[in-house]
């Protein structure tokens, strides 16, 4: 067992536990985005940062990847953490302003104004889909290409994958693209239909043909029967 202090409270947890899990155990909320139970820790969105250490050595680390250490002092909601978290959220909001998940997080963190230029990308490269596909579905159909601002996500050569079983797991775990529905325009990733409150899947009635795993639709919450 390893004993550490989170926000002044002492807690003993098993070796290998992450700071996130330890904090959740004590009931301290930490927002997460790229983290998902059942998938390997990833540490990309940086929303879950917490402050460790003291004095000039204090620093921010991603709680979803950082393992507990004996005697560590952790602050999950210091001014520094909250400021950093807020700005990371603003950056995420700037890249993906149409994501409901990010909007909700932003609103929960009292972000009322957008300082950054908006991008309208449909992916925040959180990698949940890639890990879902590889770790839970064992398909390895999608992955990352390129680097830096050009880093992107897709199937090899952007062609129809021969190993994809169309389980939909990737879309299911995606925090950014609940709006992604490729039925009407397969060549376009986002149809935007749900955003316009005209869900094409329900209106056009071919719910069954699509074998949509999302029933009810995670975007518009309308189910096939209704």
């Amino acid at each position: 067992m390893i004993t550490l202090t989170i926000n002044g409270l002492e807690v003993s947890v098993e070796k290998g536990t992450t700071l996130l899990e330890a904090a959740q155990f004590l009931g301290f909320p930490i927002p997460t985005l790229c983290h998902m139970e059942g998938l390997s820790p990833y540490g990309a969105c940086r929303l879950c940062v917490v402050e460790i250490g003291e004095g000039p050595k204090a620093r921010l680390v991603s709680s979803c990847t950082y393992p507990v250490e004996e005697g560590l002092k952790v602050r999950t909601a210091s001014a520094r953490v909250l400021n950093a978290r807020k700005m990371v959220l603003e950056l995420l909001l700037a890249s993906c302003p149409q994501s409901k998940t990010i909007q909700d997080l932003a609103s929960a963190h009292a972000i009322r104004q957008q300082r950054f230029r908006q991008e309208y990308e449909d992916c925040i490269l959180c990698g949940r889909c890639v890990r879902m596909c590889a770790e839970q579905m064992m398909a390895n159909a999608i992955g990352f290409r390129g680097r830096g601002a050009k880093r992107s996500l897709g199937t090899p050569f952007d062609a129809k994958s021969e190993v994809c079983r169309q389980c939909g797991g990737c879309i299911y775990v995606c925090p950014a693209c609940e709006l992604r529905c490729t039925y009407t325009e397969p060549e376009k990733a986002i149809c935007g239909g749900c955003a316009n409150l005209a869900p094409p899947c329900v209106q056009k009635d071919p719910f069954d043909d699509m074998m949509c795993y999302m029933n009810p639709c995670v975007a518009c919450e309308i189910s096939q029967e209704s």
Partner: peptide, 16 residues
Amino acid sequence: EESCGYCTPCRVGNVL
């Protein structure tokens, strides 16, 4: 140009 693009601050922030 050289960022790997993995995490949000470096990928999005530096461009801004």
